[in-house]
C-alpha cells in the first residue's frame, strides 16, 4: 500500500515522465552526436533517414505498449506518457520524411516515387494517418471530440501495420528484424482484440 502511494505521488510521476522524455530523445541525441563527429560513413543521408524512420517506428510500438502495461501493472502513469510517446513518434516521422525528401530524393522525381514505389506508398499512407492523430492530441480536442476521439485514434493500428509493411518491403534478403517487429505488433493488436473484441481495432467504429 505504501509502495503504491509513493508510485502515484505527483513528484514521482513527473520524474517518470521526464525519464521517458529523455529516453525518447536518445535516438535524436545519438544522431546529432554522430553527425557532429562525422561518424555516419560515406552515405550519411541514407543513414540519417533510416535511423529516423526506425526511431519513429520503435516509438510507435512503445506507444502501443502503454495500455497493456497499465492493465497488467495497474499503474496510471503508463497512460500519462502515452501521448508524449505518440508525439515523439510523430516528431521522428516528420524528420524522417523531410530527410528522405532532402537527402534521398533531392526533391526530384516526386510523382513517380509516390505512385510507383509500393514501399514508399505504404510509408506515406502510414505518415498521413499519423497527422490527424497528432493534430487532435491536445486535451481540448480530446474534450471536444468526446467518443469520436477514441474512434479516430484507433487509426494507430493500421498506422503500425502500414509502417511495418513499409519496412519489410524494403528488405532485400534478411527479414529477421522485421519478423520480430511484426510479432510484437501482432501480439499488441491481439491483446486488444482479446480484451475488447475485434471492434476495438477498427478505426471510426465506436466501442
Amino acid at each position: 500500500m505504501n509502495e503504491k502511494r509513493v508510485l502515484n505521488q505527483p513528484g514521482f510521476v513527473l520524474a517518470f515522465r521526464l525519464l521517458v522524455a529523455l529516453l525518447a530523445s536518445v535516438p535524436l541525441l545519438v544522431l546529432i552526436a554522430s553527425i557532429a563527429s562525422q561518424s555516419l560513413g560515406p552515405d550519411p543521408g541514407q543513414e540519417v533517414t533510416e535511423s529516423l524512420g526506425i526511431a519513429a517506428f520503435q516509438l510507435l510500438i512503445a506507444t502501443l505498449c502503454m495500455t497493456p502495461l497499465k492493465r497488467w501493472t495497474g499503474w496510471g502513469a503508463w497512460i500519462r506518457v502515452r501521448r508524449m510517446l505518440g508525439l515523439f513518434a510523430f516528431f521522428y516521422a516528420v524528420l524522417h520524411v523531410l530527410a528522405f525528401l532532402q537527402f534521398i530524393l533531392g526533391w526530384s522525381d516526386l510523382w513517380a516515387t509516390f505512385t510507383k514505389r509500393p514501399y514508399i506508398l505504404a510509408g506515406a499512407v502510414s505518415f498521413l494517418m499519423l497527422v490527424p492523430l497528432a493534430l487532435t492530441s491536445t486535451k481540448g480536442m480530446m474534450r471536444r471530440m468526446g467518443r469520436q476521439w477514441k474512434a479516430l485514434h484507433k487509426l494507430v493500428y493500421p498506422i503500425a501495420i502500414a509502417a511495418w509493411v513499409h519496412f519489410i518491403w524494403q528488405s532485400r534478403s534478411d527479414v529477421g528484424e522485421m519478423v520480430v517487429y511484426g510479432l510484437i505488433i501482432a501480439v499488441l493488436l491481439a491483446l486488444r482484440w482479446k480484451w475488447s473484441g475485434s471492434r476495438a481495432l477498427i478505426p471510426f467504429v465506436r466501442g
Partner: peptide, 23 residues
C-alpha cells in the same frame, strides 16, 4: 530501366555529404 522499388536514373556518388548530397 527502373528497379521495381526505386528509380535507377540517378546515383549518389560516395562519399556523399549531408548538406551537399553528391547526386
Amino acid at each position: 530501366v527502373d528497379h521495381p522499388r526505386w528509380s535507377q536514373k540517378r546515383e549518389r556518388r560516395l562519399p556523399s555529404g549531408l548538406l551537399s548530397p553528391n547526386y
